[in-house]
């Protein structure tokens, strides 16, 4: 008797709870549910991306200084923009950045595609080689910056030793990070070392996407390996190569961490890429309004260039 009443109570409860839960779930339309899921993301994006961007735009028209927040803020109009665009130091930094971006992208693309082309030949152990080649990419830029500082060390550095071994010059006769002509190349080498694997990975995906039977058709059509490369491999992998160039270009335009650790912009300002100039203005001179204006200029530049580039990329892809 007791048992029976217990079991009937359980049944009763189950019946009571069920409709309540169902009704609560039913009460939400699909649209409401969708909003529920994306609202946190939207709020987060607004808070950490959109608001700071708008705030930076506002600050770029003022004399605001982050270390003197009690000084009344004065509206300056486009004064900062005018002085930045006419400042020879800024143009020097832009030139350093351009040198860095162009050379790293060129070297990484050529080497990355070359490596991908070799790996794609599927020789023995190509899987292991892929993993080994990808290692630098997995390291933190801070770690890379630190240990390349050691590799570039004139007395004990491995890099200098290897160059000395092959050229016969004394290892301590040159300083990769201390020489005004060598240091711009020193940062290019490190970035190429670290990010060539990334370009290789994207190119490899492109090469793997070309079906074998296209090559077989070309083989039967008497196309030489050379002609197969120029008329099949390269055009079909081109969208992937362009994508890799886009990613690396944008990344390196914003390059800060690795260069800051290796040279800090020196010697003098020979490796002072735009983001280091920006950091100095913002957090060493505390010229918040000025650096905000510079940041906006950089942002517009990258955004504009990337947009033109994506248009070209889409054109290539739709061929």
């Amino acid at each position: 008797m007791n048992e029976l009443s217990a079991s009937s109570r359980i049944t009763y409860r189950a019946v009571m709870v069920r409709p309540g839960v169902t009704r609560r779930i039913r009460g939400l339309s699909d649209r409401a549910l969708a909003w529920l899921f994306i609202t946190p993301t939207i709020v987060l994006l607004l808070a950490i991306n959109i608001f700071p961007l708008l705030w930076t735009i506002y600050l770029s028209f003022t004399n605001y200084r982050a270390n003197r927040s009690n000084v009344p803020t004065i509206w300056l109009g486009a004064d900062w923009y005018q002085s930045i665009l006419t400042d020879p130091d800024i143009w020097a930094a832009m030139q350093v950045t351009a040198h860095f971006v162009i050379w790293t992208v060129v070297i990484e693309t050529v080497l990355g595609f070359g490596l991908a082309y070799l790996i794609d030949k599927k020789f023995r152990g190509h899987g292991m080689w892929t993993t080994i080649i990808l290692l630098p990419m997995m390291l933190s830029p801070a770690v890379v910056g630190n240990f390349w500082t050691f590799l570039y060390q004139p007395q004990i550095g491995l890099f200098n030793y290897v160059v000395a071994f092959f050229t016969g010059r004394a290892a301590s006769s040159f300083q990769m990070l201390g020489d005004v002509t060598l240091s711009p190349w020193a940062i290019v080498i490190v970035d190429a070392w670290m990010w060539t694997p990334y370009v290789m990975l994207i190119c490899l995906a492109g090469l793997r996407s070309i079906p074998d039977y296209i090559y077989e058709a070309a083989e039967v059509d008497r196309a030489s390996k050379w002609r197969q490369f120029w008329s099949i491999t390269l055009p079909m992998a081109l969208p992937f190569i362009m994508l890799a160039v886009l990613f690396r270009g944008i990344e390196n335009f914003k390059m800060f961490d690795m260069v800051n650790l290796l040279t800090g912009g020196g010697p003098g300002s020979t490796t002072e890429v735009a983001s280091i100039t920006l950091k100095r203005a913002a957090f060493e001179s505390w010229r918040t309004g000025y650096s905000s204006a510079f940041a906006i200029i950089l942002f517009v530049t990258v955004f504009g260039l990337a947009n033109i580039y994506v248009k070209a990329l889409n054109k290539v892809k739709s061929r």
């Binding site: 039977y213 296209i214 070309a218 083989e219 039967v220 059509d221 030489s224 008329s231 061929r319």
Partner: peptide, 30 residues
Amino acid sequence: ADRDVAFVFQQYSLYPHLTVFENMAFALRA
């Protein structure tokens, strides 16, 4: 290439970035 055979593949196997004319002319342009 030396066997002088022509092969029609099951999956068409056209060169996707070339025009129809270029596809058909491909072998002749060797």
